[in-house]
Amino acid sequence: MLEGKFEEASLLKKIVEAMKDCVSSCNFNCTENGISVQAVDNSRVLLISLLIEKDTFEEYRCDRNITLGVGLGSLSKIIGNGANSDYLTISADDDADKLNIIFEDKVKDKISEYNLKLLDIDADLLDVGPMDTDATITLPSADFAKICKDMKVLSESLQIIVTKDSALFQSVGDIGTGNIVIRPKTDIDHPEESVTISLDKPIDLSFGSKYLSDIIKATSLSQKVTIKLTDQSPGVFEYKLPSGYLRFYLAPKFDE
C-alpha cells in the first residue's frame, strides 16, 4: 500500500508540468524512502531524474516497493482539476492497476476523488551515478530561464563557457549573435539572487536550445538552479524540491 499526502497540490502540479512535455509516460518507483522517477525523452537526448523524499509529504507510507506506470498527460489533466492549495493524496494498492488521487479543499467541506489507470511500462534504468564535475554554476532559476529563451531566438544551440570568474552564454545564428555574461555575486538580503561559480577546469560546452526550453519548464519548482558541467559530458541541471530534486541530464553537442 502506497499513500502520500502533499500539503499542497501545487507541488505535484509543478513537477508534472516540468516533465510531461519531455516524457509522455514513466514509472514512479515507490519505496519507504519516497518516490523516484527516471525517464529518457523520446529523442534520447534528455534524461529526467526525480526524487520526492518522504519528508516532502505531510504523511507518507509505502509498505512494499511498488512501481506505478503513469501517463503524465493523463495525470496532468486530473491534477489540473484540483486547486493549488488543496491537500493532494495519492494512493495505490500493492498490485494496483490504478492510482487514486484525492483533493481536499482546506476551506470548504469538499473532497474530490479520481482514479488514473496505470500503464505497464518497460524501461531500463541508467546508472547516472556520482560523476566528476569541472564547473558548477548556481543562479536564480528565472534568470537562467530568461537566458535560454533570449538565446533561443538566435540559434538552435547555446554555448556555455565557464571561466574562473564568469559564465558566458553565447548563441551564434544566421541573424546574428548574442552573449550574456554572469559573474559571481553574493546578495545577503536576497540570498536567492546570489550567483556562485566554482571551477576546477574551464568549460566550453554546447547544448540544444530546444532541450533547454524543456528544462526551464521546471523554473517554478525552485528559485535557484544548479548547473554542473564536465567536458564532453552531459550537463546536469538541478532544481531542488523542499526535500528531493528534479534533475535533467542533457547530452551535449560536440564534434567527434
Binding site: V45, L47, V128, P234, Y249, A251, P252, D255
Partner: peptide, 14 residues
Amino acid sequence: MDKQHSILSFYSSF
C-alpha cells in the same frame, strides 16, 4: 559541425 549526442551513449543500464 557539432553533433547532438544521445544521452544513452554516456550511461550504461543497470
